[in-house]
């Protein structure tokens, strides 16, 4: 208190007059009332202060205190009251905002309203974006426009799930401890969300100008090439055809994404890092999806041609057998010796 008054007396800072005005303008009692409101704020010493204020209020409320005391109290209360009010206001706003967010997240219909802007598209727009996902734009000096939209990507991922399911079924894939459906959904959504987050993280590290929404949209539309290639090659089994399509369609859709990222990144090393990672992941994913569920088809076809052969299946490698062989060999070696 005394420190406060001392500072006031010796205060030559520009804000001193502001404090004085504030105190002069407001009476001590009103400040105390404000103090009462601040009892719930997060200041640590507030409870103790509040207690003291209460006691003093009982004394000062009778207006028996001298002018000087009142001024002192007033100043103290004014300072603390101002801080408390500010803290309380901020805390209140944060609390209100948090409450609003939580109630929104829990309410399904409100939740839909949050997502609705991302689904605000016309069929023509979706069609043109699908076409554009195959056409790389060579302009990398100026940031390219990336539409932040989720309808197209989401539908493409579901289409990829259906195509993958088809590939798995025709190839007779056996998945232990899981269903085909779950694996297909997990693979597609895992790739979409996982790679988007990873590239976004990299982009954040190298300071590229891209948001998570744009990344999701970019990668989602990039899956259109995958859908086309896989749909064709799951039904027409030519290795040559696959490699041509892989390089052509997969390469075009990858180039499109790379060009968009290039235009939004500055510097050689960041560009190389970001685009190298993305193109590597994207092209490898297509290879994986194709050969993981395609090679088996050929194995199955071979086995169907030979009537007595057992169908080839994807099973875990028989590790005990290998070790058994190894031990046998060891024994043989020992016997030889």
């Amino acid at each position: 208190m005394s420190a406060g008054s001392g500072s006031r007396n010796t205060n030559t800072e520009p804000w001193g007059s502001f404090d004085d005005n504030l105190i002069q303008g407001s009476s001590a009692v009103i400040d105390m009332e404000n103090m009462d409101d601040t009892s719930g704020s997060s200041f640590e010493d507030m409870g103790e202060m509040h207690q003291r204020m209460k006691e003093e209020e009982e004394v000062t409320a009778e207006a028996a205190a001298t002018e000087d005391d009142a001024a002192d109290d007033g100043e103290f209360l004014g300072m603390k009251g101002l801080k408390g009010q500010l803290g309380r206001q901020v805390a209140d706003e944060v609390w209100q905002a948090g409450k609003r967010q939580a109630s929104r997240a829990f309410n399904l219909y409100a939740n839909i309203d949050i997502l609705r802007p991302y689904f605000d598209v016309e069929p023509v727009q979706v069609r043109s974006r699908l076409m554009e996902s195959m056409i790389p734009v060579r302009m990398i000096t100026f940031p390219q426009k990336i539409a932040g939209e989720l309808y197209g990507p989401l539908m493409l991922v579901f289409t990829l799930v259906a195509i993958l399911l088809h590939g798995m079924k025709t190839s007779g894939t056996v998945i232990r401890e899981g269903t085909l459906m779950g694996t297909a959904i997990g693979t597609c959504f895992g790739y979409w969300l996982g790679v988007s987050s990873f590239i976004y993280f990299l982009a954040y590290l190298v300071n590229a100008q891209i948001t998570m929404l744009q990344m999701l949209s970019l990668l989602g539309y990039g899956l259109f090439g995958h859908c086309v290639v896989l749909l064709v090659t799951y039904n027409i089994h030519f290795h040559f055809l696959f490699y041509v399509l892989w390089l052509l369609i997969g390469g075009l859709s990858t180039l499109r994404m790379v060009a968009a990222l290039l235009s939004r990144t500055v510097g050689q090393t960041p560009r190389l890092l970001l685009c190298g990672t993305l193109s590597l992941l994207h092209m490898t994913f297509l290879l994986y999806l194709h050969f993981n569920y395609h090679k088996i088809v050929e194995g199955l076809l071979d086995s169907l041609e030979g009537p007595n052969m057992v169908p080839m299946q994807r099973v875990a490698r028989d590790v005990p057998e290998l070790t058994l062989n190894a031990t046998l060999r060891n024994q043989e070696v020992l016997q030889v010796h």
Partner: peptide, 17 residues
């Protein structure tokens, strides 16, 4: 009315599967 195609596509995919 302008978005019927967008709604029909997932329905188509669903029944197709």
């Amino acid at each position: 009315p302008n978005r019927k195609a967008l709604v029909v596509y997932p329905v188509f995919l669903f029944y197709f599967v």
